[in-house]
Amino acid sequence: MKILLPIFYLPPISWFSFFVDPENEIIFEQYENFPKQTYRNRTNIYGANGKLSLIIPMNHNGTRLLKDIEVSTREKWQKIHWKSIKTAYQTTPYFEFYEDQLAEIYTLKTKSLLEFNLHAIKVIQKILKIEKKFTLTEEYIREPESLNYRNHFSAKEKIGVDLEEYFQSFSDKYGFLPDLSILDLICNKGPESLTYIKNIKFK
């Protein structure tokens, strides 16, 4: 089954349920016009004060295509994001185990949002121990033949998915926060993360 997926920054857990499914042939959309306020340049983690959005600042160079979008080099966002992640997850059961691999995400020097996101996804693949191949679109097709999930995941609205609760570091204060970045699952569930993803049920 061909699945057209958006390319996100450290995607939410539900995104990975489509990505890791062996029945799915994954195609990443790179020719879409860049939509604002989406997971394409933001990810949600569980901070000490609840949900925390990490947003990659854009360099407004006039382009609209996702594949040409550049990230800002003026702000030290990579350093800030990594510090926020360490602060949020350093007390989780598996952060120390994966810390060096996760740090690799923020060593990449690139102006390309697309390149950075793909690099981050590949790092996560290594952690999850999955070798999932994918292709990139060669043009924008308004009504593709493949299943279109370009607009399926919203950074603002809940999607119809049942996620089993698991322990999160600050859940005693704010309760369980579902469908955060894949980082949240990895740091809290470790080697059980892939099994958790495969068991996700959509409504």
Rank of each mutant, 00 (worst) to 15 (best):
102 L>N: 09
71 V>F: 05
111 K>P: 02
110 T>Y: 08
93 P>Q: 09
92 T>K: 06
83 K>L: 09
66 L>D: 00
53 S>A: 14
76 K>Q: 09
52 L>Y: 09
104 E>G: 01
83 K>G: 02
65 L>N: 03
70 E>N: 13
97 F>R: 10
105 I>A: 05
112 S>P: 12
93 P>N: 12
56 I>A: 01
55 I>P: 00
109 K>N: 13
92 T>D: 06
112 S>N: 12
50 G>V: 10
91 T>W: 02
72 S>L: 08
50 G>W: 04
65 L>G: 00
81 H>F: 08
91 T>M: 10
70 E>I: 03
78 Q>K: 15
106 Y>W: 14
61 N>C: 10
86 K>T: 10
86 K>S: 04
97 F>Q: 10
52 L>Q: 14
109 K>G: 01
58 M>G: 00
101 Q>D: 13
73 T>E: 09
108 L>G: 07
60 H>A: 06
86 K>Y: 01
65 L>W: 01
100 D>V: 04
57 P>E: 06
98 Y>A: 08
91 T>S: 15
110 T>P: 09
68 D>N: 15
97 F>K: 10
101 Q>K: 15
65 L>T: 08
55 I>C: 05
110 T>M: 12
95 F>V: 13
68 D>K: 13
74 R>I: 08
73 T>D: 07
95 F>P: 11
50 G>L: 06
67 K>A: 02
110 T>H: 10
72 S>E: 11
98 Y>G: 09
102 L>G: 08
81 H>M: 07
89 Y>G: 09
93 P>Y: 07
84 S>Q: 12
109 K>P: 00
60 H>N: 12
58 M>L: 15
64 R>H: 11
64 R>C: 09
51 K>W: 00
87 T>I: 14
80 I>E: 11
67 K>W: 00
62 G>W: 05
88 A>Q: 03
54 L>R: 02
79 K>C: 04
109 K>E: 13
56 I>Q: 01
78 Q>A: 03
89 Y>F: 10
92 T>C: 06
63 T>K: 15
71 V>Q: 11
66 L>R: 02
57 P>S: 07
80 I>F: 08
83 K>C: 02
108 L>I: 14
83 K>M: 07
86 K>P: 00
61 N>I: 13
96 E>V: 07
99 E>L: 10
59 N>K: 14
55 I>V: 14
83 K>P: 00
67 K>Q: 10
55 I>M: 04
100 D>R: 11
77 W>E: 04
56 I>D: 01
104 E>N: 11
109 K>L: 05
75 E>N: 08
63 T>C: 07
97 F>H: 12
108 L>Y: 09
108 L>P: 06
64 R>F: 13
